[in-house]
């Protein structure tokens, strides 16, 4: 089938709503944050929905308590608030407690990167990959389109333990037009290249595909990988793919050099002894208060399409053929 673009959250919430009528163990919690599909959940399943108010610490604690009573919990809020406002609760009563008690809590954070474009740095989220991947027992899932977001529903239901889903707040073009990616390896190879491969997550996959297509017409044949499972990807399969390249480029809509995707790949490549150079593309510098479109903001901080293209051209020259 061909998918029409949807918001990632609505695609995932639709699957949850459909499942809630059959699976009475699903509970939905939120911190005063909505969506059109959430209205259906609120109306149809009032006994298994609760809005805790603007209180993310309590959102996590209530969700943990519900999970200990056997519910599969989906907790929903804006990405920086559901990660950083309540990080201690996440650490203690999800990451730590799930070490000894079976519990299934799925944190749905909306607003990855700059996706709340005009709301400024409080609502934008450039630190979550770093923070959430630091927690043992947590899965960190980062879809690039709504098809992948919806596909993660099965992961949420079938795999116990705490998870964080970082969803974009905007409706993005569909990447997986015919069928969702195979989730088992944690990544999807979109293109195979000659000497260089781009490894992107979330929104930056769109930039990576665009840049790779444009550079292809200039004679650069660059591979592109969508890394959507940032904690449990298959290391051996990723090694098999990456070891064919002399250059790897990480692309993330998060701070560069602060423990995100770039650090993860650096460590991966070092530990595995791969002989590949790396280029890291991520948000440069610190916080920004300037207003602009997402495209303009991305160019300002070094992750826009032109900036990425230029950086990759320069990097390509440094690689052995």
């Amino acid at each position: 089938m061909i998918f029409k673009p949807l918001a990632m959250r609505d695609a995932l919430l639709e699957k949850i709503w459909q499942a809630m009528s059959k699976d009475t163990k699903i509970f939905f919690t939120c911190a005063d944050f909505g969506s059109p599909v959430l209205d259906k959940i609120r109306a149809d399943f009032p006994d298994r929905f609760v809005n805790v108010g603007i209180a993310e610490q309590n959102l996590i604690n209530i969700s943990a308590g519900l999970a200990l009573e056997g519910y599969t919990v989906f907790a929903y809020a804006i990405a920086p608030f559901i990660t950083m406002r309540c990080y201690e609760q996440i650490r203690v009563s999800l990451a730590l407690l799930s070490e000894v008690r079976q519990m299934n809590v799925n944190l749905i954070g909306v607003g990855a990167g700059y996706s709340y474009v005009v709301s400024g740095p409080t609502h934008q989220c450039y630190e979550d990959i770093t923070l959430m991947r630091a927690l043992p027992n947590f899965q960190v899932l980062s879809p690039a389109d709504h098809v992948t977001s919806a596909a993660f529903f099965d992961t949420c239901i079938n795999q116990s333990g705490p998870k964080y889903l970082r969803l974009d707040a905007q409706i993005l073009p569909v990447i997986y037009e015919l069928e969702p990616p195979n989730l088992s390896s944690g990544f999807h190879v979109h293109k195979r290249g000659e000497t260089m491969c781009l490894v992107a997550t979330g929104y930056m996959l769109h930039t990576a595909l665009k840049v790779a297509a444009e550079l292809s017409s200039d004679g650069f044949h660059i591979g592109v990988i969508d890394l959507f499972d940032l904690a449990r990807f298959s290391a051996s399969e990723l090694q098999n793919v990456l070891q064919a390249y002399s250059g790897v480029v990480s692309l993330e809509e998060g701070f560069r050099g602060r423990g995100g995707l770039d650090s993860m790949l650096f460590e991966f490549i070092a530990r595995r002894g791969l002989k590949t150079k790396m280029l890291n593309i991520g948000v440069e510098g610190a916080y920004h208060f300037e207003l602009g479109t997402r495209t303009e903001l991305h160019e300002k901080v070094g992750i826009g399409h032109h900036a990425v293209k230029e950086a990759i051209r320069k990097f390509a020259i440094t690689l052995p053929n």
């Binding site: 309590n58 996590i60 604690n61 209530i62 943990a64 308590g65 519900l66 009573e69 056997g70 009563s93």
Partner: peptide, 9 residues
């Protein structure tokens, strides 16, 4: 907080 979630559940 967690106990409250359990009581609610």
């Amino acid at each position: 907080g967690v106990g409250t979630g359990m009581a609610f559940g």
